[in-house]
Design a binder for these strands. Structure first.
Lengths: 232, 232
DNA sequence: TTCATACTTCGACCCTAACCGAAGCATCTC
DNA sequence: GAGATGCTTCGGTTAGGGTCGAAGTATGAA
C-alpha cells in the first residue's frame, strides 16, 4: 500500500473547488495576479493567497514578482497536460459543472486550452492538417510531414526553430466539448500565436473563449478547409 | 470560472489517502474484495465501504457481485490511464510517499501497472522492441511494424485478434520509477499475460511486483536483448 | 512623508467528511 | 434451522482544513 508516488497529495490539491477554479482560470495561458485569481475562484484575497501558497508548494504553480504584483502561471507544460487529462476524464464521466446544454457557444466554437486552440475550430484545424497530409496521424502520435513543414513555413511559422524546444512539436489533446483530438505541443502554440499576431483573432477578457474577426474567420476557414471525405 | 468539466470532484475523490490507496491497489489489475481493499487502505471495513460507494458513484470503480463477495476493479482503461498520468506527474514533482531510496528493489525491477509490465523490465522490453524494429516510435506514438507483428506471432501472440479491440494496440506509459516509457495498450497486456501463462513469471500476493523465475528471467532477457547502441 | 494598492500572516470560527462501534442485511455452510 | 462470513447502514465523535476579519508587510504614487 505504501508503494509509489503520492497521488493523494496532488488529488487533494486539485480537489478543492477554489483551487480547481484557480487552475482552470490559469489554463487560459496568461499570467494572472492573486487578486484576479481570487475573483475567478469566488473567494476573498486571503483565502486565495492561502490556496496559491499550497499550489506553489505542490509544484503546480510558478510565480513571478513584478513590482507590487504577483503573477501566477501554471508551473510548466506538464501541469497543463495533467489538467487536460483530468478534464477530459471528468467530461467523459459527465462531471460537468453546468448542464451540458448549448451553453456558451462561443466557448465551444473556439477557446484557448493552456496555450493552444481548442473547441470546434481546434478540432477542425487538426482534421484539416491531417486530411491535407500536413500531419500524419499514427496511432496516438502526430507527426509533421515535410510537406506540412513547407506549408506552415509559407504562413510564417518557422518549424526548425520550434524543434529547438525540448517540448514535443505535435501532441494531440482531447477536447472535452468535442470529445475529439485537437493539436497541442509547441506547434499548436505557435499556430495560435500566429493567428493572434495577424489579428485574425483575439482573446476575450475573463474568459477562455477566442473571438475571430469576420476577416480572420474567413481566412482561417480558407486555410483549413474541411473536405467531406469522412476523415476522422 | 464556471466553464468546463468539474475537475474538483474527481480531484477530491482521488485526494483522500484512503481512496488513493484503494485506487493504487486496484492498479494491480486484479479484482479485489471490499475486505481486501480495506486492509490495503489501512482502514476498517465500514470506512472502506463508504469510500467504495463514493468511488463507484464517481465512475472510477466497477463492481461485480459474486456470491457473498463483492469484487471491485477500476471502471475501465480510462481510469487506469488517468491514474498513470497523475502518478507520473506526482513522481516528477517528487511527491513520493517513501524516501525515494533503493526501497523495494523487486518493485523497481518488475511490477504490474494496471494490466501491463512496468519497472526496469517493462522499460527494457519497449527499448528492445524499438531497437529491433518491431515497434516504431514516432513522437509520442508507438506503432507495431509488420516485422514486429510476425515476431510476436512467433511467440504466440495473435495481433490481429487484439486489433478487434477498441482499445489502442500500443500506448506508451510513463514509468514513475524509471521516468522512461514502457509499453501499455492491449499489446502490453497481451505480452504480460503471455509471460504469466508460460510460467516465466508470476504475481506476488498483496503487492504489485512481478516475480520472474530463473528460467523465465533467462528467456525474457534473451527475447528482449538490449544492444548498447544508446537507443533512448 | 503620507497615502494607496497588492498581498501575506494571524487568529478564530465553523463545517465537512473521515472514522469507527454497533447493529442490520445478505449469502453461504452445516 | 443455526451459525458464520461478507458487507452495508446508522449514529456520534473528532480532526483537519477552508473561510474570512483584522492586522501586518511590501511596493508604488503623490
Amino acid at each position: 500500500m505504501k508503494e509509489g508516488p503520492d497521488i493523494a497529495q496532488i488529488g487533494s490539491l486539485i480537489g478543492d473547488p477554489g483551487r480547481a477554479n484557480i487552475l482552470t482560470a490559469l489554463m487560459g495561458g496568461r499570467a494572472l495576479t492573486a487578486t484576479e485569481l481570487a475573483a475567478a475562484a469566488g473567494v476573498t484575497l486571503q483565502t486565495a493567497s492561502a490556496h496559491l501558497s499550497k499550489l506553489e508548494a505542490g509544484g503546480l504553480l510558478a510565480q513571478r514578482k513584478q513590482g507590487r504584483h504577483r503573477y501566477f502561471t501554471l508551473a510548466d507544460d506538464g501541469v497543463g497536460k495533467l489538467l487536460e487529462g483530468i478534464m477530459g476524464f471528468a467530461a467523459s464521466r459527465g462531471h460537468l459543472r453546468h448542464r451540458p446544454g448549448p451553453k456558451d457557444p462561443a466557448l465551444r466554437k473556439a477557446r484557448i486550452c493552456y496555450d493552444h486552440l481548442a473547441g470546434d475550430y481546434g478540432v477542425r484545424m487538426l482534421d484539416s492538417l491531417v486530411a491535407t497530409g500536413a500531419i500524419s496521424a499514427m496511432g496516438e502520435g502526430l507527426n509533421l510531414t515535410p510537406h506540412g513543414e513547407a506549408h506552415l513555413g509559407s504562413i510564417g511559422i518557422d518549424v526548425s526553430e520550434l524543434r529547438l524546444n525540448r517540448r514535443p512539436l505535435c501532441r494531440s489533446c482531447l477536447d472535452w466539448s468535442e470529445r475529439r483530438a485537437h493539436l497541442a505541443g509547441s506547434l499548436g502554440k505557435a499556430l495560435l500565436s500566429n493567428f493572434l499576431d495577424k489579428g485574425w483573432a483575439r482573446r476575450t477578457e475573463n474568459s477562455r473563449s477566442i473571438f475571430f474577426t469576420p476577416e480572420g474567420d474567413r481566412r482561417f476557414l480558407a486555410l483549413f478547409p474541411l473536405e467531406t471525405t469522412g476523415q476522422s
